[in-house]
Structure formats: C-alpha cells, structure tokens
Design a protein around this nucleic acid. Sequence first.
DNA 1: CCTTGACCTTAAAGCTACTCGAAGGTTTAT
DNA 2: ATAAACCTTCGAGTAGCTTTAAGGTCAAGG
Lengths: 171, 171
Amino acid sequence: MYQIGKLASLTGVQPMTIRYYEKIGLLDKPERQENGYRYYGDLDLEKLNFIRHCREHGFALDEIKILLELKESPTANCDVVDALLESHVQKLEEQLASLASLKKQLVSLRQKCRVHGSIAHCGIMMGLMNRSLCPCGERHGAPAPPPGGESAPPKAPSRVRDRRKKAPQSA
Amino acid sequence: MYQIGKLASLTGVQPMTIRYYEKIGLLDKPERQENGYRYYGDLDLEKLNFIRHCREHGFALDEIKILLELKESPTANCDVVDALLESHVQKLEEQLASLASLKKQLVSLRQKCRVHGSIAHCGIMMGLMNRSLCPCGERHGAPAPPPGGESAPPKAPSRVRDRRKKAPQSA
DNA sequence: CCTTGACCTTAAAGCTACTCGAAGGTTTAT
DNA sequence: ATAAACCTTCGAGTAGCTTTAAGGTCAAGG
C-alpha cells in the first residue's frame, strides 16, 4: 500500500499527473487514509503502469480509456485494439514524412547563410520573407480564389515546446 | 488596402488567426475604418506572410517575435538567426529519431497479435501491460526519466473535429 | 515545545496556437 | 425587405499536463 509519492516513484508518473488522471476519470478514486491522504494498492500500480506504457506508445488519454475498458472485459475481441494500433502507425508515418520534409527545408535554408553578416543580407531571412522555400505550392498573393471553392493551404506542422524538466520524486 | 477577409485570402491565414496574432502582439493594431473594420496595408501583408512562412518552418510564435524584431534592425548580425535554425534542425532530428523508434515499437507490438481472439490472450495488450516493449530502458520503478532530453510521447491528434490541417505534432 | 522540511490536500490558472460560439453590427444583392 | 456575407467583441474550449497559491500532516532535531 502506497501513498501517492510512492506510487509516483514506482511508476515514474508525477503525483500531480496521477491526481490529474483521477480527476479526468482515468484512474479510480483511491481509498483515503484518516488524514485524507490517497492510499493505493497493487491494482492501481498495475493500472497506472498500463497507462504509462500506453502514453509512451503515443496513445491519447481518451484512447487509453478505451483500452482500459477493453482490458476489463477480457472475452472481447481484440480487433479493436489492432485497429487502434494500425491507425497509429499510419499517423506516425505521416508525421515522420512531414518532419523529414521540414528538416530538409530548414537545412537548405541554413545553407543560405554561410556568410555571417548583417540581417539585411542574410539569406535565411530572405528565405523566410519570400516564398522560395514555401512548402505550400507557390500561389501566394494570388487573387482570392473563385467564390465557391475555398482553397485552404496546408498548415504548418506546429511544433510544441517541451518544457518539462525535472522529475522530483523521492526514492 | 484590405479588410481582414481579403488579407486572409491573400495569405492563407484565417481572420480569426490574424486577430489572434494582433491580440498577442505579433501583428500591430491596424487602422480602422469608420465602421470599425480593420484596414490593412501592404506592410501588414508582408509581415503576415513572413509570420506564415516562419510557422510553416516550424517556428514557435515567440521565436517569430524575435525574428520579427531582428528583421526591423537589419544591421544586426545574423548569427542569432542561424543559431535559431540550427537548434531547430537539432530538435527536428531528435523528434524524427524518437518517432521512428516509436513506430518500430508499435509495428513490433502489432506483430504480437496475429491471431485475433480475445483480449485476454491478445499479445498487444500483454505488451502494453508489462514493459517488454517499453522504450524507456527497463528501469521502471527507478526515479523517473532523466531531466534533460527525454522523449515525450507524441500526443495523438484529436479526432474530434477535422478541419483540413496537418496534425500538429509534439515531441 | 517549536520549528523545519518533506510530505500531503484542494481549486484554479497557465501553457501553445489556435478554434469555436454567441450575440450582434454593416454592407451588398436580390 | 430581407437574406447573405461580411465584420465586431469577448469568452471559453482543445490536450495533457504544470504551476501557483494556500494550506494540513507528520517525523525529526534543537
């Protein structure tokens, strides 16, 4: 039987995140000690580990919810699981392709600034200003498209910053 | 001189997004017509295009803010720009590696379920339960992942609503 | 006994980069 | 006259946490 900090150190999931999972209904509400502290058992440990592994494999929380429900009904057919995985692999492939192309562009853009001088003459800035390297075809600044069909250019692969830094649990 | 909708169609950036950029101070507040409508000029067009190209190259909004400031002082040295790009390429490489490894794991996980039967015997579920395929080394129960560079699992794109756009990936 | 520090509690706000909705004003076309 | 297509504002929602604020509990040390 563990307190939240212990569970955290056993799974590598921060206490805050554990509470968050409880809040959104991914983890059951645990028993409480007299002082109000959460009190976990081995089943919780197992479940949290499952969740963690799923996250590590890139599943979204609502997908994990489904997986957890499936896990509770072991007689069900596992086609669903397989389908979930397949669609995941596909998404990953798309992401990989998109990132690879982005990287290619950036590297090529970087080549443009081999002489380090003023911004005014920096090839990189030039590249960012006009659409020479733009991945979206090349009809920028074209007159608005005919009324009916709206042309939506592909959006940028947005990058999210990764501002997590420490894992402060005690041993 | 354009209204917001015109600017939007010229740049491929939605009016809502333009207003958002204004709100966070990325774009200057434009003049207003008598009726209160925003009124843009060619400088705004150029700036918004710059922003758009930057986003397409994966820069975050606060980085773009920096780039825009640099753009205003053309005599500055462009080393900063180059450094920004370099760190970007590096991040991309990390993301690529992490995604590739993730994909490998998923594919391997999928192999485990060649016989489609009950969840109870599904190799995928097994794989998710114990850490056989876990990408994080195998010291679970050890004090959480290292602070520095770790691979945050990519979030699955929300499939709630789908408005043609590349799914933002995170790392 | 008192304090320090490590633990635990809660609710609420913040992060990114938008996106949507409500509730309304204006302009143009029929 | 009325509808369609623009425009306005503000606030809230998205994912998956993280941070903050404000405090309660508990064991050890002085």
